[in-house]
């Protein structure tokens, strides 16, 4: 494992921990999109179907369990916790799941490396992860006033994607035959979705101001 991959995984882990910290300690999920969190839970459930059948390393198995456990518990908190669910911006978080899920499923059925159930589900999870942040970005745009933890959560997710691209470039040059078009293109699309957010995050950081997104 190279340093970019490890740093990517660690920022991904940090993003989830920041979100859980916000929900668990402040008992608030204001500004967090339940739609995005449900999509992530679906992404991990479809991607890690092989968790008990294909052993890669202890690190991989533990990380998979953490991502599955944290994404489902975040969804549980936002839907059912008697205090947390009251802070959920339901009326603002109106993005429809199926607008993202259906096209990704069709695309995975058409474009995949192997037409088997596990492989199509894995490919579907890559396509869906690429666009799963959209409801969150729309919610941020609508609420505009973003608290620090929510801003840091999205920033860390974007950093994770950027680091994964560096990881692929590194692997392409160091490992023979490391070519994964489906992963790369969906990963690139995903990272580009954060570009706009990163621009405003950088501006607010540079000017030492609270993060505001333009209408």
């Amino acid at each position: 494992m190279n340093i970019f991959r490890l740093a990517g995984d660690m920022t991904h882990l940090a993003s989830v921990l920041v979100l859980l910290l916000k929900i668990h300690t402040i008992k608030s999920c204001a500004g967090v999109s339940l739609k995005t969190q449900e999509l992530y839970a679906l992404v991990f459930a479809c991607r890690y179907l092989d968790i008990f059948t294909n052993f890669v390393s202890l690190y991989n198995t533990v990380m998979k369990l953490i991502f599955l456990g944290s994404s489902f518990s975040i969804v549980w908190y936002m839907r059912y916790h008697k205090v947390v669910r009251r802070s959920y911006d339901k009326d603002q978080d109106t993005f429809r799941h199926y607008f993202l899920v259906l096209p990704c499923l069709v695309l995975a059925l058409l474009i995949n490396e192997k037409f088997t159930f596990k492989e199509v589900m894995w490919t579907f999870s890559l396509y869906l992860e690429a666009v799963a942040i959209l409801p969150q970005l729309v919610l941020l745009q609508r609420t505009r006033n973003i608290d620090n933890l929510t801003g840091q959560y999205v920033f860390l997710l974007g950093a994770y994607r950027g680091l994964y691209i560096l990881n692929w470039i590194y692997r392409y040059f160091t490992e023979p035959h490391f070519v994964h078009w489906i992963t790369w293109i969906s990963g690139l699309v995903q990272t580009l979705l954060y570009a706009d957010f990163f621009y405003y995050y950088y501006q607010s950081w540079k000017n030492n101001q609270k993060l505001h997104l333009p209408a």
Partner: peptide, 10 residues
């Protein structure tokens, strides 16, 4: 095989 190599990523 080589196609499976990327599957060690999360």
């Amino acid at each position: 095989g080589d196609k499976e190599k990327g599957k060690d990523e999360l």
